[in-house]
Write a protein that binds this DNA or RNA. Structure first.
Lengths: 202, 202
DNA sequence: AGCAGGTGTTTTACCCGTGAAATTACTGCG
DNA sequence: CGCAGTAATTTCACGGGTAAAACACCTGCT
């Protein structure tokens, strides 16, 4: 969540940069690469016409990641809104549920990739709704502990299967094998990005 | 950009749902799947411990797409901010540059996946900065036409190569072949999502 | 011609997230 | 003990996005 709103609402990616592979890749042999009938392909084509000298390769990847994320999130939000939760709120509740224990605001911020200020606000709202409770730490009075109420736990447990089913349906656009390949490639990229990310901040 | 802020700022994905493949997929043979040392893997593991009966497969894909998008966008924003532009502004300018001709606010909204209201605001700001100009349509006085100024065009052309180089560096975490595979898989998913997306709005 | 209905754009009101400052509290050291 | 330094959390001011309402204008029908 902390990341530039990949998630939240409107979402991002749109007309981003995208490049075609470094020569390798996607072609399936048949006329159109089979996967190339997406918005990003069109955008890349336009850039190539205007700037034929540029290597548009990265756009193909990054543009698609962004756009997929946007669409997937949009889809995912539907079931949540029906339960009256925003994605950010669900993420917070989910963090509490999956860790199985109380978390401090700071931990929640790290866990949900959002700012401390955002956590403060969300916790306040969720407390008012009776989904979450807070208590001060007895030793260190600076810190607070947030935990799910019974209602909160029930809400998460009720939504989660629905959410997963919905995601499964959306992903069915890709067969099982491809989903696995995709998860693998993304995981590889992700683990390296998360590793030496700070090193690239020019 | 219109999509639910995959992009923008704080970014989203965080503690999202993610599933492990449907049996196929990522394993490389060696102990840890090689790609499984990312944040998402940990989150999925937690969910599985708490809800062993649920199929966490979709999380593996969707969670990673979201998280990758968040990190990539965060990285991409760096070069833009140095030029004093937000990603949304750059997308708008980029749409004008790559299409090569004037666009109406409505077209800009569609092209950048954002709301009309957002376009109105951005165009106003960019006009004040002298990067863009607007003129009313002579036939239909409801519509406006927005075009790049010379300064705007120069700015985009100056930033783009830098942006692409930066993206290329970030993606170098994956070798060329894998980038191609990834682009292919994402393109396939994306084209189907974009196709029958509206059909899933329960 | 005149108006009902539709379309393109802007305005309005509001929500939500952020960074920086403020607040409160702990800790180690002289 | 008392204070400088640091840490956890909240408050503040603001930017940017959205949906819905308001506008302005066109078009087709009678």
């Amino acid at each position: 969540m902390t990341a530039p709103q990949v998630a939240r609402a409107g979402s991002t990616a749109g007309a981003d940069t995208a490049r075609t592979g470094t020569g390798t890749g996607a072609g399936e042999g048949t006329g159109t690469p089979a996967a190339a009938r997406d918005t990003v392909a069109g955008v890349v084509r336009q850039w190539r016409e205007v700037h034929p000298e540029l290597d548009t390769g990265p756009m193909e990847v990054i543009g698609r990641v962004n756009r997929c994320a946007a669409l997937l999130q949009q889809a995912e939000d539907a079931p949540l809104r029906r339960a009256g939760l925003s994605r950010a709120e669900f993420d917070l509740l989910g963090a509490l549920r999956r860790t199985g224990h109380e978390l401090t605001p700071g931990e929640l911020a790290r866990e949900t990739f959002s700012s401390g200020a955002a956590v403060t606000k969300r916790v306040k709202q969720l407390t008012e709704r009776g989904l979450v409770e807070r208590r001060g730490d007895t030793r260190d009075r600076r810190v607070a502990h947030v935990r799910l109420t019974e209602a909160g736990r029930a809400l998460v447990d009720g939504i989660l299967p629905e959410q997963l089913a919905y995601e499964k349906a959306v992903l069915s656009a890709l067969d099982g094998d491809r989903q696995g390949e995709l998860a693998g490639l993304l995981g590889e990229l992700l683990s390296r990005l998360e590793g030496h990310m700070q090193g690239l901040r020019r």
